[in-house]
């Protein structure tokens, strides 16, 4: 529900998204020293592969977004990681597009950064309890909700005609949000127990 294809948005929205993403990617890249490069690339690859994982949710089948998880583990470096994964998805599978790359990256990476910030606010460092899982769940679900809002916003900015259709975006986002909340809580809960330094090491 988050990959907007080419041809939908108007030029000003494309340019705005491109500018935000260029700045975000540049800032994120500055955080990736040679030591962190493999870690960021692994997360970027996970984000890419997640789009191929379909999960049943009620009547429909949804695919994971994973931007909350990216923000929680990577912080600012999530931006370039999402950018790279989206470029590959567009080229290899035709998910999303080329001119909208900036907008799509912003729609997913800005919520990722917010989710990372929220997670670090809610969780105490060194904690492995239920509280960590709860913080991760809210980060995961919140990131999906924020992405849906931004997708709806990009469409609304591109034309008044899209306004009534925005309920479609909300309807497709709701199941993803529920699944992603539970999913992120479980994934980060496991990481906190097995590799706690991964979650505590971030600024």
């Amino acid at each position: 529900m988050a990959h907007i294809p080419d041809g939908v948005l108007t030029m000003p929205v494309l340019l705005g998204g491109g500018a935000v993403s260029a700045a975000g990617t540049w800032m994120g890249l500055r955080q990736i020293g040679p030591e962190r490069m493999p870690q960021v690339a692994v997360l970027s690859a996970v984000f890419f592969v997640a789009s191929l994982v379909h999960l049943p949710a009620g009547l429909a089948s949804v695919h994971l977004l994973l931007n909350g998880l990216m923000g929680v583990v990577l912080g600012m470096a999530a931006y370039p990681a999402i950018m790279v994964a989206l470029l590959l998805q567009a080229v290899l599978f035709g998910f999303g597009g080329l001119a909208v790359l900036g907008v799509n990256a912003a729609n997913m990476a800005v919520p990722a950064l917010l989710a990372g910030w929220l997670f670090r606010r809610l969780r105490r460092p060194g904690d492995f309890s239920r509280r960590t899982a709860l913080a991760a769940g809210s980060a995961g679900g919140g990131a999906v909700a924020a992405t849906a809002l931004l997708v709806a916003g990009s469409l609304a900015l591109s034309g008044q005609d899209f306004l009534p259709a925005l309920t479609v975006v909300a309807a497709t986002a709701a199941p993803v949000m529920v699944v992603e909340t539970v999913f992120t809580a479980a994934a980060i809960g496991l990481l906190a127990r097995v590799r706690p330094e991964l979650l505590d090491g971030q600024p």
Binding site: E35, Q39, A41, V42, A45, T184, A186, L190, R195, L198
Partner: peptide, 23 residues
Amino acid sequence: WRSIGWLVGMLLVGSLERSERIH
């Protein structure tokens, strides 16, 4: 949903260790 969460968690743990060795 939780099982898939643990699956991706395990995927991350395994791959990160591997990536450190590669690096």
